[in-house]
Every structure is written in C-alpha cells, then in structure tokens.
Amino acid sequence: MNLNQISTLIKKEFLLEFRQKASLGGILVYVAATVFISALSFKGQIHTHEWNALFWVILLFASVTISSKSFLKETKGLGLFNYVYYSARTFIMAKIIFNMVLMLIISLITLFFYIWFIGGNIQNFSLFFITLALSSTGFAGVLSLMSAIASKANNNFALMSILSFPVLMPMVMISIRLSRQAIDGLSWSVSYDFLLILAALNVLVIMLANLLFPYLWND
C-alpha cells in the first residue's frame, strides 16, 4: 500500500466524477426527487421516529446508487491499466476513501433537502453529524466491496442491492438508534457505547475489504 498512489487515485476519481457532470447531478436529482415525493406523501404530518427511519431509507438507497457505479469504469481498458499499475489494496483503499467523501457530501445534501422540505428538529446536531460521518465510512467500506462483486457479475443494480442490504443491516440499525438519540437530544454518555461499536464496525469492515479485495482483483 502506497499513500502517494492512494492520493493520486483519489484525485483522479474526483476529477473523473466532476468531469462527468451527469453522474453527480443524477444523484443530486435522485435525492431531491425522493425527498420531494416523501414530503408530498407525508404532507408535514410526521413524527420524529418515522422522520428518522425515512431519512435512513432514503440515504441507504442513495448510497447504493452512488457506489453501484464505482467499479463500472474499471471493466474496460482503463481497468487493465490500473491492474498493472496499482496493487489491489491501494486501489480498494482509494475507492473506499473516495466513496466515503462522496457519501458524506451526498448525505449532508440529503439532510439539507430533507430539513428544507419536510422539516425537522435535531436537538444534538453534532452527534447527528458524527453518526453521519461514521456511517458513511462504514457504508463506503461495505458498498465498495459489494460493487466490486456486482461488477464481476454483470453489473446488475438489483444484484447490488440484494447483496448489500442484508450485509449493511447492523450498521443501519446502530445508525438509526444513534440518530434517534441525537434527535431526542439525549446526553452524550448514552451514545458513547454505540459510537464505539459503530467505529469498531467501520474498522472491521475496512480491514475485511482490504483482506478480501485482492482475491476479486487477481482473476
């Protein structure tokens, strides 16, 4: 693993992402449209717990959509170049970090739209933000590996969601619990345990992705 190579890879990813305005804009429109539809269907009558659950469902689908195309580009000629030039671990780390940043940005934008359209009152915003940051790291770790798997299997979006939803479940459950505590404004001491579990889960997921990705890469 080489830090220089990772940073060049991440830079290249961002460059590609911003050059292709359609893909990033597509996700933004997707998020805005989903939030708008939910706002219309709930008509402002929504309790905090449903508010929370709906937010995470939207975020989950957005995350899967973002990451499902992260290995799409690697199937053609460029992939061969990357394969020769970079080691598998460097490559997956770059993907995970890139996806993490992208997911954090998208989740903040989703939150912005969500509060704008549906409203909401988060009492402990810093806890909510930390939960978002930690969960987007974990989501990035899981979904990068899953999209690598799905890209080897004909790159099917349905397959991608079938594979990743059950695996994402532990993280989603903890994140929902944490964000509920943030909304209710419970004291920090209640949430330390869960924050620690979520952080440990992130470390575990990223380690597993590092361990397993080389076997997908070398075929």
């Binding site: 590996l145 798997i149 695996v167 459950m173 579990i197």
Partner: peptide, 25 residues
C-alpha cells in the same frame, strides 16, 4: 467460485457481528 467465496466470508462476519450487537439494541 472466487466471487461467491469472498461474499460468503464477508457476509458471515457481518452476520456474526449482527447477532452479537443486536441484543444491545
């Protein structure tokens, strides 16, 4: 063979984690 083995291992670890942390939730 390769891809399903990778998914199998990853999913099993996540399942064990899920079974372990869920009772706390």
């Amino acid at each position: 063979a390769r891809i399903s083995a990778v998914y199998n291992i990853f999913a099993y670890v996540m399942l064990i984690v899920f079974i372990m942390i869920l009772p706390r939730l």
